[in-house]
Design a protein around this nucleic acid. Structure first.
Lengths: 356, 356
DNA sequence: TTGTAGGCGTTATCAG
DNA sequence: CTGATAACGCCTACAA
């Protein structure tokens, strides 16, 4: 039976068997340098014989630290967040810490819970990708534990940020479509009235690109979609088509929306990109395999994940609130595929990457 | 500053402020029933005033339990496992426990680590979806902590199992294609020489269906694919087509493989399902949005997740190894979509579900 | 280089 | 219904 289940083996027992003190066992377990080789061997033999493993709870209590960090995302069933979680877990692992994932389900209530819940006492810090929270929740964001925020939704607050340049990226995506001669570019996923969120920033970039190209902005081309899922993207696309708006391109504010739109266009037998070109945002793996393969904005997921973990660990190591909070802006690239470039476009093997 | 960062508030301080003993605070915190309302209020007021939160590490040490369960999966970037993790997290949450995800990267070494690693001392039990481990690792699976195994790869061993009827499900999927008049059905994702894994079982079901229909088995129709990713599925499809094998249908042993095959067929301008019909396995959300939408086997993910969590919690509550280990077989359904039924097929809104 | 003492914050026990 | 007290197993001093 288990060392844990049945009268767990403790350092005391190891010490007794090895004929040393408990402290020496602790030193061996923690890789303390100055131990006589003979002693070390005795202890290691005892550990092996008894199958001893440290009691993490006791260590955590004593150290006041768990080496566990939280990652709060809307849902793992959204591919972008699943891929992000994958990257964060790998980055954390490389640095010797473990990730505890929390799903907020995009609900404001759950996001507030994440900031105040019991689970904060199990982790040393939090990487938080909020969706529903906004400027109005400024107070709730005044947390007293190390936190790194992902995305540009929230400013201020005592937290480091890892963001991307949403405006610039959206401008590039739109410019990509404009450069291909498209003039009636629909936007799917707009959030009316929003000021700070990704939707607002990406719409802003879209408008900037139009303006630079001298193409008039037409509000009829904006389709709302609260949740950025495939289903809502498909619905929005159908609404636009039903409304009879003239369209020659679609900019999905994330890939799920764009893939939903692609699905809707397929269902209506509308040629992509012949009649309507489509571009998304996030570069989830699925975009390299859709039919047609889908152009998108690659936000540098690995860089975001690694930077977030590094910033968080630095903040955990030195939580001093007077140390300035950082804001890191990740790079992005435009990935051109069939949904905008047509059938001759490079396949997933060698995506055309337009540095921005 | 934080209750945690700076001299955390303890029960002692709460007790002092409320004018009660520390035990009474503990009782209030843990929802003990027999407390005078007046006392409870005093304590709650003190808790609120000081912003007290229990120290989870101390509680865990004392209780000898963390209310944390592990979930070991190959990779979250594989949609099936991301969706499974989502379901497991929800199921666990509903039962008051938290899930700690571990990625094994499908490597045998990492899978063995999961069974022996330090992290096992942080969790009360483990839900494990092994991929690389097999019958030869029988010894490593003789673990001394509560474990639930997902999938049919491993038998024996002191663990509860949640599996699906892979043979029967694959037989149904193949029968679905045969029922549509297909006779040259390729299989993508075969593992030559494997006896117990999903690949072997699903191939077995495929053969059974052929035999029942009186269609001869042709080894040339089997395409190997070690990793069940989109990329390997696409490669395998290309190999089959390059070999000039006559094919009128494809059975991808999981959805990623089938989606990769779909991608390859699209790249070669081969009509699906006109020329080749395609069916997958797993029913990931992506299959309802691909072009064409893809038929697949739905393995009852929610049921699997909930059952796994329930079995694990039962085993944690009563780890007695003499209590018989259970094996639960989840239900499945065949979801018919455009990739086999053609353009008139029901869309994702109302999938045709053939009960099996 | 190794040993001893004490406490991290909580919960269980058992009186009262 | 509430209080005092003793562990839970480890690690940080400090001493030897």
């Amino acid at each position: 039976m288990s060392t844990r289940r049945t009268g767990a083996v403790t350092m005391h027992e190891v010490a007794a068997l090895a004929g040393v003190s408990i402290k020496t066992v602790s030193n061996v377990v923690n890789g303390y340098q100055y131990i006589r080789p003979a002693t070390r061997e005795k202890v290691e033999a005892a550990i092996a014989e008894l199958g001893y493993q440290v009691n993490v709870s006791a260590r955590n209590l004593r150290r006041g630290r768990t080496d566990l960090i939280g990652l709060a995302v809307p849902e793992l069933s959204l591919p972008y967040f699943a891929e992000l979680a994958d990257s964060v877990i790998r980055a954390a692992e490389a640095r010797g810490v473990t990730v505890l994932i929390e799903q907020t389900g995009s609900s404001r209530e759950r996001e507030l819970e994440v900031l105040s819940g019991q689970r904060r006492h199990l982790t040393d810090g939090l990487i938080f990708s909020p969706l529903a929270l906004g400027q109005q929740d400024h107070d709730a964001l005044q947390v007293d534990f190390p936190m790194v925020l992902l995305g540009e939704r929230i400013f201020g607050g005592p937290a480091d940020h890892v963001t991307m340049n949403n405006v610039e990226a959206a401008r590039s995506a739109t410019a990509h479509l404009l450069g291909l001669g498209r003039r009636r570019i629909a936007v799917i996923g707009a959030h009316e009235g929003e000021m700070m969120g990704s939707a607002a920033l990406r719409e802003k970039g879209y408008r900037q690109a139009l303006e630079e190209a001298g193409v008039p902005f037409d509000p009829a081309l904006l389709a709302e979609a609260g949740l950025w899922h495939r289903a809502t993207g498909a619905e929005a696309m159908h609404r636009l088509l039903d409304a009879g708006v003239e369209i020659d391109a679609v900019f999905g504010l994330n890939d799920a929306l764009a893939l939903g739109a692609l699905h809707a266009l397929h269902a209506r037998r509308i040629d992509v990109p012949g009649k309507i070109a489509v571009i998304g945002f996030d570069d989830i793996e699925e975009t390299a395999y859709s039919s047609p393969t889908m152009s998108t904005v690659a936000p540098g997921r690995e860089q975001i994940a690694q930077t977030a973990v590094d910033l968080l660990l630095a903040r955990i190591a030195d939580p001093d609130p007077d140390r300035p909070y950082q804001r890191v802006v990740a790079d992005f690239t435009i990935v051109g595929r069939e949904s905008t470039l047509g059938e001759g476009a490079p396949a997933q093997a060698a995506p055309l990457r337009t540095a921005s």
